[in-house]
Amino acid sequence: MSYMHVLNGDATLTLFRQSGIPGEVVVCREMMCEGKVKCTNDMAAFFETRSKHLEYHYGIDKQTYFSNVVKELEKLKTAGDYDEIVLWFEFDLFCQINLLFILHYLRTQVIRLPKISLVSIDNHSEVPEFRGLGLLMPYHLPALLQERVTLQEEDLQLAARAWQAYCQGDPPELEAISKQSTPRLPYLGPALVAHLQRLPAVENGLNAIQSYFLRKLSMSSLRWYDLYAQFWEDMKIYGFGDFQLDIYIQRMRSAGMIEQQDVMLSITNLGREVLNNEENFTDYISLKHRWLGGLRLMHSPWRWDGKLKHVVRVE
């Protein structure tokens, strides 16, 4: 048997190599849960649009993106040469959206697809504070490989629907799909709900992450790394790293919601007013270039209703 293993990020790469598991390894270094994605099967057009967006809005060098990210992903085109593709993706939003993309890439770019299997967990008995595969030891991985599940056609179809809805910026469809997870894709539903909670809230325009930061800081000022540590413990469903959280903090500082003094973060009076639903966060920030997948937030009617716990349309 020949295997192609697809890992989500470099955090697991060294661990995987030390495990002794045979096969070719491809590392997905993307963060498809962040920023704009284009709805197309043309990967050249997709990556061109994606690279321009990431360079302009996230400071990710276009040339580095193509050499470090795209070139690695192009190895997937040889997937048909293997007997099985094993996907190693975790339970969180970061991983699940990348998983949807990888499945989309394979289905649209590989003529003869071999069996596709998935290793995906949300806890481990030997790691009490499990947040990802990178926290495991090399000897844990062969056992996980034995527990992998083979994806069926219904799984691939559901993933294709979810990716299309994500790229088309269709929150109601994503909400519907979140209730249809298959037994082999148990984490897709919760991840999609977490994604939808990144929409501005009906009450005050804050999304779930912004609201979490302000609530924590309303109780006391915190060092940024302590705030991040609490976020990773309480909001592990997102799977975000320092880079993404830094962007959130920077934007909230620019909007006047948070102040920073050295490593200390504090909530401002305006931040408290927004948190108390006396002001609306969207009045103090620009949504012009803000995207959630294929949904451009500027002029978007879609909001998250925390009381009803679902997506609503506001005019």
Rank of each mutant, 00 (worst) to 15 (best):
S221R: 12
S221L: 03
S221M: 09
S221E: 10
L222G: 05
L222S: 10
L222P: 05
R223S: 03
R223T: 04
W224C: 02
W224T: 07
Y225T: 10
Y225D: 11
D226K: 04
D226Y: 03
D226F: 05
L227P: 03
Y228T: 11
Y228V: 13
A229I: 06
Q230D: 14
Q230K: 13
F231V: 01
F231K: 02
W232C: 14
W232S: 12
E233V: 07
D234I: 12
D234M: 14
D234F: 12
D234K: 15
D234Y: 13
M235T: 06
Y238M: 05
Y238D: 00
Y238R: 07
Y238P: 01
Y238A: 04
Y238K: 09
G239S: 13
F240M: 15
F240C: 12
F240L: 15
F240I: 15
G241V: 11
G241L: 08
G241H: 11
G241W: 07
D242R: 05
D242Q: 12
D242G: 07
F243C: 07
Q244D: 11
Q244E: 14
Q244T: 15
Q244S: 13
Q244Y: 14
L245M: 14
L245E: 02
D246L: 05
D246I: 03
I247F: 13
I247M: 13
I247D: 12
I249S: 07
I249D: 05
I249F: 08
I249A: 13
I249T: 11
Q250I: 02
R251S: 04
R251I: 02
R253F: 02
R253C: 00
R253L: 01
S254G: 06
S254Q: 15
A255N: 00
G256E: 08
M257E: 01
M257A: 09
M257C: 08
E259D: 12
Q260A: 13
Q260H: 11
Q260D: 08
Q260G: 08
Q261Y: 14
Q261T: 15
D262E: 15
D262H: 12
D262P: 03
D262N: 14
D262G: 14
D262F: 10
V263P: 07
V263F: 09
M264R: 04
M264K: 06
M264D: 06
L265V: 04
L265H: 06
L265Q: 06
L265G: 03
S266L: 04
S266Q: 08
I267A: 06
I267F: 03
I267M: 07
N269S: 12
N269F: 09
N269C: 05
L270G: 04
L270W: 09
L270A: 10
L270K: 13
G271Q: 02
G271T: 02
G271P: 02
R272Q: 06
R272G: 00
